[in-house]
């Protein structure tokens, strides 16, 4: 008998011999606990059913179900203890490794395998090639999952003369806003288009660095792509740096806490972002509204491996 079951020696001493002769020991406490638990479960089911009809469905139903399920669970565990088997049954492990007999009995199969597969290199090679060819045959439908990239990432909806409009479609009056406020804008006619989102800021003009002005700032207005160059979240937090409120400003991405310097071409100041936010060159049209001078110089947001020089 491989499944010999017997008690572990030390445990025996704790059981009175009478328990074995007259019957099994019974755990009365576990018995009572099981009764109580099943009663709770019954009440829980009823509470759940009633709770469904109340206004507080989710809470009452949930707690009722919790009592029903938990009661059944606790009852079963207690019931398992009713017989008080407190077992230390012992079962022998069968050896898992191959015995010489096992190996011997495989010999014929191994020899047949060697004959059919092992020595037929041509067939094995052709089968492998067939599988490869079959996989190639399935590539087509996978390609149907999405269009081939055709340089969409290199351009956005910004065109020379595109008006900057807010999410409500309102153009931005170059005179209208006070300093140090952030507004999200899109090109007119492309509101909500992901790759064209832009943060527009009006900053004290004398704080802007010369290259920022050179790249297209008007009267303290600067515009940067709102897509973080790290992982593509929207860079939506703007703040006056409290270490030097008169001279420092920050643009922060809420996802991974990349910090950019809006006064200096949105160069990264901290966090994981490796590249500045592309700047949108601005000018003012005849009606006094802000417009773009053209598209960004390169792809916005996170880049693919071959897009690095375009930035």
């Amino acid at each position: 008998m491989t499944d010999a079951i017997r008690a572990e020696p030390g445990q025996r001493d704790q059981l009175a011999p009478d328990d074995f002769r007259t019957g099994r020991p019974v755990n009365q406490r576990a018995y009572r606990a099981a009764i109580l638990a099943f009663l709770v479960a019954i009440v829980g089911g009823i509470v759940a059913a009633v709770g469904y009809a109340t206004d507080r469905t989710d809470v009452v139903l949930g707690l009722g179900l919790a009592a029903a399920l938990g009661g059944i669970g606790f009852g079963l565990v207690s019931w398992a203890k009713f017989l008080d088997l407190d077992e230390h049954a012992v079962q022998q492990r069968e050896p898992l490794s191959m015995t010489p007999q096992d190996v011997e009995s495989f010999r014929e199969e191994i020899e047949l395998t060697r004959e059919t597969v092992g020595r037929r290199k041509l067939l094995v090679g052709l089968l492998g090639a067939s599988f490869l060819s079959m996989i190639v045959g399935f590539v087509g439908p996978i390609g149907s999952l999405g269009p081939r990239p055709r340089g969409e990432r290199a351009r956005t909806s910004w065109r020379p003369g595109s008006r900057l409009v807010t999410i409500d479609g309102q153009p931005v009056d170059s005179e209208a806003r006070s300093f140090d406020q952030l507004v999200t804008v899109f090109p007119e006619g492309a509101v909500g288009v992901d790759d064209s989102q832009v943060v527009l800021l009006r900053l004290p003009p004398d704080l802007l660095t010369p290259r920022t002005v050179e790249r297209g700032s008007v009267d303290g207005w600067v515009a940067y792509s709102k897509i973080c160059t790290h992982a593509g979240c929207s860079v939506g937090l703007f703040g006056v740096d409290n270490r030097a409120p008169d001279t420092l400003r920050q643009l922060v991405c809420p996802c991974h806490q990349s910090v950019f310097d809006p006064l200096d071409s949105a160069e990264p100041l901290g966090g994981p972002a490796p590249r500045p936010l592309p700047q949108l060159a601005l000018e003012v049209d005849a009606d006094g509204f802000l417009v773009a001078r053209g598209d960004f110089a390169g792809p916005v947001g996170p880049i693919a491996w071959d897009e690095v020089d375009a930035v």
């Binding site: 079951i5 572990e8 989710d58 809470v59 009452v60 139903l61 949930g62 707690l63 179900l65 919790a66 009592a67 029903a68 399920l69 938990g70 009661g71 059944i72 669970g73 606790f74 009852g75 079963l76 565990v77 019931w79 398992a80 203890k81 017989l83 088997l85 077992e87 230390h88 049954a89 012992v90 079962q91 022998q92 492990r93």
Partner: peptide, 30 residues
């Protein structure tokens, strides 16, 4: 292997645990 046999102890405790887990999840959901 020293322990308890599947039937009845282990099986009843384990099925009981299924219901206990479900019960706790229901309470958390509520």
């Amino acid at each position: 292997v020293v322990g308890e046999r599947i039937w009845p102890t282990f099986a009843m405790k384990s099925v009981g645990l299924l219901f206990l887990v479900a019960g706790v999840v229901a309470a958390m959901g509520a």
